[in-house]
């Protein structure tokens, strides 16, 4: 069984009027079944309102299922005795770096989580060291978080989660407010954590380029899982993605357009190197035969 398991998950946002009568029910997740293997890097795509952030909040027990079950390392999120263990297992990083930093000094911010968990002081410092090292922010440990760039702040937020030693980290659009450099920084950090520390990563994003390196891509629409596969499988279905209001990376789109025009290219090309590897020999051959 995977580290995160959702079984027939349903979640309704219930709006009540002043007399606590139910006024409106909005089904955000509608019968989701998902099993995520420990150590994998899973990206979740879906347009605004598709239910992906609601799902993220289910994973660390910020929201509790209306129906169905969410199991984190086998623990039911509905079981109040386990809620802290659930949150310790699955740490969360949000979109806005400014909303999740509380310390006046970077090292203090990173130590906040383990301190709250009652970790002994010596162990806290050890974890702060390790976490800052893991996100490449050791040089900034005595700086004020206010003076950092957006990408650096997000890396501090990730270090703060790491210091709680979670098995799994959920990132809800962690790069939406960052510039291209900051975006690269954060994604590279997350990929490293997954590869080196074998932390399970659940990345929610709107940027298709960030998904290319994932082990698995899940597409959500109307609270349901509508596509599930490797990035290559998913991005070879360009038309379907567009129907779900999503996009493909420019490289994939160019390859798709050229394929449509009859060029012999593989389906679901993801990187520039793949495209060039197929396109360059073909073009050279064509140009040579034109010359003859």
């Amino acid at each position: 069984m995977g580290i995160i398991k959702a079984v027939n998950l349903i979640f309704d946002y219930i709006k009540r009027d002043e007399e606590e009568q139910i006024e409106e029910v909005d089904r955000a997740i509608d019968g989701l079944n998902l099993d995520i293997q420990e150590g994998s890097f899973v990206a979740i795509l879906g347009h605004n309102g598709s239910g992906k952030s609601t799902f993220a909040k289910q994973v660390n027990g910020l929201l509790i299922p209306t129906e169905g079950t969410v199991l984190i390392s086998g623990m039911d999120t509905r079981d109040e005795n386990h809620i802290w263990d659930v949150r310790r297992t699955a740490g969360m990083v949000f979109q806005n770096p400014d909303n999740q930093i509380i310390g006046n000094v970077v090292e203090e911010d990173v130590g906040f989580g383990p301190e709250n968990m009652g970790v002994p002081t010596e162990e806290i410092w050890k974890r702060v060291d390790e976490s800052l090292e893991a996100v490449g922010m050791t040089a900034y440990r005595l700086k004020s978080p206010g003076k950092l760039s957006g990408g650096q702040k997000q890396r501090v937020a990730i270090a703060g989660v790491m210091a709680m030693k979670p098995k799994c980290i959920i990132l809800d659009e962690p790069t939406a407010m960052l510039d291209p450099n900051g975006r690269k920084e954060v994604i590279r950090t997350v990929q490293e954590l997954n590869r080196r520390e074998h932390i399970t990563v659940l990345l929610i994003t709107h940027y298709m380029e960030e998904v290319v390196g994932a082990d698995r891509v899940v597409v959500m629409d109307e609270g349901k899982m509508v596509m599930d596969g490797t990035p290559r499988e998913i991005f070879s279905r360009v038309k379907e993605l567009k129907e779900y209001r999503l996009d493909v990376p420019q490289v994939t789109e160019l390859a798709f357009e050229l394929r449509q025009a009859g060029l012999p290219l593989s389906k679901g090309i993801l990187t520039m190197y793949e495209l060039l590897g197929e396109l360059v020999p073909y073009l050279k051959e064509q140009i040579r035969s034109q010359g003859e």
Partner: peptide
């Protein structure tokens, strides 16, 4: 367009 999906 910050934070919007591709269609948005």
């Amino acid at each position: 367009t910050a934070g919007l999906d591709p269609k948005g």
